[in-house]
Design a protein around this nucleic acid. Structure first.
Length: 222
DNA sequence: AGCCAGGACTGAG
DNA sequence: CTCAGTCATGGC
């Protein structure tokens, strides 16, 4: 992946942000009540529709198995059954177990005392936590400025013609973080808007030649 | 009836 | 390091 146009990326990224906001409003993510629920959702939503994640989380709540300690106490088989509707349930159970094992020994609030680079490294060291999951936890649970990138982000920028080539997480994240103020609320809303845009608006229809959001397409087509 | 969803890990070249 | 294969359910 390479960045096509380097100049004025700062302004372009802010313009795109405001276009998305005018289209979708203010979202104030993440759909969860606690930092642990954010992390759980971040792992469960890997390559999975959010509606299926909700089913799994509801199962955990209904079984009164929703604290790190409670999840840590049950078996792999039991966890697999509860996570079943979220897909990849064997892998997800393994990942969730690795995560709770880590934070039972070292609570999230302790981890969150670190700065972003150290916190990110620690999260990445946990089995099942890759770059997007780590950044989601940092931004939406720890509330520290680490930009979250996903396939929707790549599609949008790719269709706008700002990047070319294969998806590259680190370069895409750097594109945002090197050209925007490190503001938690800005990063929060920006990623949320991109996902909302991608999931609800940007369909792969023939008429969607660019990104699918008409105002964005119109605005950046000149 | 396919196609694909807010990825990460593994092994091969 | 780059990349295909693997994991799996449920909604449209």
């Amino acid at each position: 992946m390479r960045i096509v146009c380097e100049e004025n990326l700062n302004k372009k990224l802010l313009d795109l942000y405001h276009q998305l906001r005018s289209e979708h409003g203010t979202l104030k993510w993440w759909p969860a009540d606690t930092p642990f629920e954010v992390a759980l959702g971040a792992i469960l939503t890997q390559a999975t529709a959010w509606r299926n994640v909700v089913k799994a989380i509801d199962n955990l709540k209904a079984a009164d198995t929703f604290t790190p300690e409670q999840i840590h106490a049950i078996s792999q088989d039991e966890l697999e059954q509860l996570l079943h509707p979220s897909g990849y349930f064997r892998m997800k159970a393994k990942k969730v177990r690795a995560f709770v094992k880590h934070i039972v020994q070292r609570p999230m609030q302790e981890m969150f005392k670190q700065d972003v680079p150290e916190l990110r490294e620690e999260l990445l060291s946990i089995y099942g936590v890759g770059p997007e999951t780590a950044d989601s936890i940092i931004l939406y649970a720890a509330e520290k400025p680490s930009f979250v990138v996903d396939t929707y982000t790549y599609r949008l920028l790719s269709r706008l013609g700002w990047v070319e080539g294969n998806f590259h997480y680190a370069r895409l994240r750097a594109l945002f973080m090197d050209n925007l103020p490190h503001d938690v609320n800005l990063f929060n809303e920006y990623h949320a808007l991109i996902v909302r845009h991608g999931a609800r608006v940007c369909q792969k229809t023939p008429e969607c030649q660019a990104c699918g959001l008409q105002s964005v397409c119109d605005y950046f087509s000149n």
